[in-house]
């Protein structure tokens, strides 16, 4: 019984993550400003990916060191990357 519940929770997290991926990425081909796209994309890529990894963690706890490392790497590096991209692109626009 508990196995079923954990399996369901794991799948729920993975489904949430994949839904976030689709939601955030769907703004990419539209005609919106770069910073808006960057915002939705970082939400989807960071939060969606972390949700997928948590789902895997719930389903298969045996690989926890790898998954925890992936969560930290996502949370730190992708946030910094989002900041760097925003800084670089807005500095380029100001000089036009």
């Amino acid at each position: 019984m508990t196995e079923n519940i954990t399996s369901f929770v794991g799948y729920a997290f993975i489904a949430l993550g994949i839904f976030l991926w689709f939601w955030g990425t769907s703004f990419l081909p539209r005609k919106r400003s770069l910073l808006f796209k960057l915002h939705t994309l970082s939400v989807s890529d960071i939060l969606g990916s972390i949700a997928i990894i948590i789902g895997l963690l719930v389903k298969l706890p045996s690989e926890w060191p790898l998954l925890i490392l992936a969560i930290f790497s996502l949370a730190i590096w992708n946030t910094i990357l989002g900041y760097v991209l925003a800084y670089c692109s807005s500095a380029g626009v100001d000089h036009e």
Binding site: T25, L34, L38, L41, D45, L81, L85, S89
Partner: peptide, 11 residues
């Protein structure tokens, strides 16, 4: 746009 391409690449 080069920034849009870079955004797609990061994704």
């Amino acid at each position: 746009n080069v920034w849009q391409k870079l955004l797609a690449f990061s994704s």
